[in-house]
Design a protein around this nucleic acid. Structure first.
Lengths: 247, 247
DNA sequence: TCGAGGCCTTGACCCAGATCAATTAGGACA
DNA sequence: TGTCCTAATTGATCTGGGTCAAGGCCTCGA
């Protein structure tokens, strides 16, 4: 149960998501107030952070790791509806039960705020409310792009789309970029990718193999991916490739 | 070009969406200020309100009629990513070009606010910012439910889901409800439904016929629908039918 | 060193929904 | 009353991705 838990940041000053999370616009006083209602919490890979329908006593931000938001039908069909990366926000002010399952895909550290003090503070603090609006609008855009992927793309295009989303994100965090070449690790199992894309895991596996055979990606093991030519990958994804800049 | 345009409301006092739109929490003074930057505009059925990529000088609310938000790939595949009903908000503060095509599906009246004065006012007026956050969170929830439909439901379930969304909305506006019986007009062509659901129009047509043959719906003409048993329809949609109340 | 259990890959076959192609229904207008 | 036009239906056929099944390849623990 308790492995060596990743160290949580000790305060907002050293926080890795200080300038991207809900609190990014807060001034020193506001941060001080936030510190009084916040606490850190760690989850291991595979652990469920919240079950749909649960009462939730907190809202919060992902500090490190990756989590997923999923929806399930009675017969077990499941669809991922959100991919939570560091700085992403969990929970909805004004709602007290979780709408989706939230599952840690890797080890995750969350910065949690007790719900009702946070709501009070948000009502008084436009910096927080405004940033949350921005983030929610960004999520809505992402959800809409994803709807095009789910509704209209072929299996191969779906995989290429997912890879290019992950590649672009990692590139924006300035990991392995060099002359159009991008290197990253997949943070998802084949099954999770299938749930993301509305496919079966077999189809995911086949299409990844096909992209590898065609030289669009290079695999080292099952998770480590090199994209030799980002433009080629974007082409495969079927996206308007009109020079959408990294970042 | 100019048929007899539907009369726009003359002021916020008589506005049919006064208590549901972005302005719903505004007090009298705030409304007075809004009136100085707003104007009405009408569009005919079929007309494009905004093209993706266009500069947009306004944001605004749908007052009456139905419009769609769609995304298109170079080869013409299109996916609807939003269905705009009266009181829904169009445009994103802080962004100056449209991200999607916005098309009037029926005759539409919009209440438009000049963009930069609206942004200024929003920065000063928590009532507006807060309501916009609420509405955006609702849209995000709707988008996520839609993702489950697109990714994991069968064609028949997709159609049933769409019908029950429309039926529930109309029921909440208290049109023809009586003892589980709901009556409404489809605001979309078969093609628009296909774009909503990630299907072809032929499949839409076939599945509607199938639901009719099976007695799940009764059709009068091509657009007028009666649902004899709402629970039955919800079953067909594959949704958790644990008493989700109308509204 | 071996076995167990996850994860992943690959093959063979099948079917829901796409595609291609008529045909019909319902207005609008002359 | 016919004729044109667009939306919708229906049929025949094809195919991308699902389903079922059999291994392969790790890592971990004994």
């Amino acid at each position: 149960m308790t492995k060596h838990a990743k160290l949580a940041p000790t305060g907002c000053g050293e926080c890795p998501i200080r300038y991207r999370a809900v609190c990014s616009k807060c001034d020193a006083d506001e941060l001080t107030e936030l510190e009084t209602i916040k606490y850190y919490r760690s989850y291991e890979a595979g652990q469920t952070i919240l079950w749909a329908g649960d009462q939730m006593g907190f809202v919060g931000s992902v500090v490190s790791g990756v989590a997923t938001l999923t929806q399930t039908m009675e017969d077990g069909r499941t669809q991922m509806v959100g991919l939570l990366l560091p700085s992403d926000f969990v929970g909805r002010p004004g709602r007290d039960s979780a709408a989706y399952n939230v599952v840690a895909t890797s080890d995750v550290v969350m910065c949690c705020f007790r719900k009702s003090p946070f709501e009070d503070m948000m009502a008084r603090t436009p910096h927080i409310a405004h940033r949350l609006l921005q983030m929610t609008l960004d999520e809505l855009d992402a959800a809409r792009e994803w709807m095009l992927v789910l509704g209209r793309k072929t299996a191969r295009e779906k995989i290429a789309s997912l890879l290019s989303i992950i590649a672009r994100r990692d590139a924006s965090l300035s990991l392995g970029v060099a002359a159009g070449r991008v290197v990253f690790d997949l943070p998802l199992t084949r099954e999770a990718m299938a749930d993301y894309l509305g496919l079966t895991l077999e189809t995911v596996s086949r299409q990844i193999s096909a992209l590898r055979k065609d030289g669009v990606i290079v695999l080292d093991g099952k998770r480590h991916v090199t994209v030799p030519d980002m433009d080629r990958l974007m082409d495969e994804a079927g996206d308007d490739n009109d020079g959408g800049m990294l970042i």
